[in-house]
């Protein structure tokens, strides 16, 4: 009997895990964006004192973990699991950061959906009684992703208006049993959706249907409608994907226009480098941790649906002409502890 499930794809937490603290580290470009004042730390140099960009990405994740422990006054011994992932081959940014972290570790790959994938799994571990406290994190880095997925950074090419810039950022949270909220109350796990888009410079169009599928599934499973939430936030659809998602949701009978935004749209002021907006695992992680988490704490928002979105392609698959499969996972974060469903 899976009594904590509702509908097809949703889990409802019984002992709702509470968000204890968050920490973020971001790059220079993100630190010059509209959310600049919310981040814990902004690094000016993409190398961040290391010899490679890959080491720098591991370092911003590691420092964010150290920062969140410091903020919450916990030690590594008190954390039972860590869930983290990134975009690099074999998720080395997370694996190498975890080398310095004496906590049982789950490495996740959900492309840019990793943050909510981690929150859902971490939440289940806590609610299931398998952990008192877990760390959930995600990172991405413009230069490491660019060289792996696209062109060398020094190559003089123009980006089309649908292109997105991988966010240099790490965002980390601690979830625990008990605590004063905000609470993780539900998670809807997405399935892989491929609507035939094959342009790696247009990930917003590839991911929008996955986000919409998960959001609609969430409403159907829980019986909620968009009014239930103060804000619905997708991870990194950016301006192109956000517009598509809004219209697709309308076609499904859900008008979210007045309460819908996207982390990829929020993080940058638009220019030739960012085009449609931000992307990357760090995008939704850093925007949620630095911007939405405090707003929940201060009571400005009481209910948020966070839907991180991932494009599941590799340079090999798109060179072979494959289409881009996508995924989205939704988590409901609420300030009030739910008193039973209904």
């Amino acid at each position: 009997m899976a009594e904590k499930r509702v509908g097809r794809n949703t889990v409802i937490f019984a002992e709702c895990p509470s968000f204890v603290a968050t920490a973020t580290t971001v790059g220079k470009k993100e630190g010059e964006g509209p959310l600049a004042k919310y981040f814990d730390q902004v690094i000016q140099d993409p190398l961040y004192g290391e010899s490679t960009w890959e080491k720098a990405e591991s370092k911003i994740l590691l420092e964010s973990v150290q920062k969140v422990l410091q903020k919450s006054n916990y030690t590594f011994d008190q954390i039972h699991f860590m869930f983290s992932g990134d975009l690099l081959n074999q998720i080395t940014a997370s694996n190498f950061a975890a080398r310095e972290i004496p906590v049982p570790f789950y490495g996740l790959f959900g492309a840019c959906s990793t943050f909510t994938e981690g929150l859902a799994l971490g939440g289940m571990a806590v609610d299931g009684g398998f952990a008192q406290r877990v760390l959930v994190g995600a990172s991405s880095h413009y230069q490491t992703a660019e060289r792996q997925y696209r062109y060398p950074t020094e190559l003089g090419v123009q980006k089309p208006p649908t292109a997105q810039r991988t966010v240099t950022a790490a965002g980390v949270v601690i979830l625990e049993r008990g605590g004063s909220g905000p609470f993780l109350t539900a998670a809807t796990i997405g399935r892989v959706i491929d609507m035939g888009i094959n342009d790696p410079m247009d990930m917003g169009s590839a991911m929008a249907p996955a986000a919409v599928h998960t959001i609609v599934q969430h409403f159907q499973d829980t019986g909620r409608n968009p009014d239930y939430y103060d804000v619905i936030v997708t991870g990194d659809l950016a301006s192109v994907g956000k517009n598509l998602a809004e219209d697709l949701l309308k076609k499904e009978g859900y008008d979210v226009t007045d309460r819908y935004t996207d982390c990829g749209v929020l993080i940058y002021k638009p220019d030739v480098d960012t085009q449609a907006g931000g992307s990357g695992c760090g995008c939704s992680a850093a925007v949620f941790c630095s911007y939405f988490f405090p707003l929940l704490r201060e009571g400005k928002y009481r209910r948020i649906l966070l839907v991180s979105t991932g494009a599941l392609m590799s340079p090999t698959t798109y060179q072979q002409g494959e289409t881009i499969p996508a995924i989205a996972h939704a988590v409901a974060v609420e300030m009030d502890y739910p008193k039973g469903e209904g």
Binding site: T162, M195, G196, P209, V240, L244
Partner: peptide, 16 residues
Amino acid sequence: EQEVYKRWANARKPKP
């Protein structure tokens, strides 16, 4: 279904 979506999305995407 994929063809229909792809055409719809491509028609709406911003042009250079």
